[in-house]
Amino acid sequence: MSELRELYQDMILDHSQHPRNRGKLEKATHHADGFNPLCGDKVKIDLMVDNGTIKDIRFEGSGCAISTASVSLLTEAIKGKSEREIEILFGKFHDLVTGKNENSGESDNLGKLAVFQGVREFPMRVKCATLSWHTLLAALKNEKKVATTEK
């Protein structure tokens, strides 16, 4: 039960039930769709990028609590950041949810995103936590194709 409580922390439940930055951006400069064929989770991300940094972000989509909370918290974490900074942040986040940084203290720099630490006990759910990040990176590259968690 405690592993479950760690996975479904209050902040994750809150963001999954009341996601932030939901909707569309009228003046989006970048956009990407993400899809996890395994569970049918879908996410669409609109970005407004100016001078290499993210000015605004919105998302639409449906998914499980982990994927919805992930995209909601992501939208809060990346405003004002550059593509390079986002790639570094995703690297740390990925290590966190796959359990690669157990003792390195990296999660200290992740801010609120550290609540996803419980995912590492649930390998089948890593893709739920990372779909929004793959989609965000695809949007930044303005890739037209649908981003998926399958490499």
């Binding site: 039960m1 479950l4 479904y8 982990i66 649930f122 089948m124």
Partner: peptide
């Protein structure tokens, strides 16, 4: 979401 239900049931 069904995915969350199944994860909890799995435990």
């Amino acid at each position: 979401h069904p995915h969350d239900i199944a994860s909890i049931l799995d435990r």
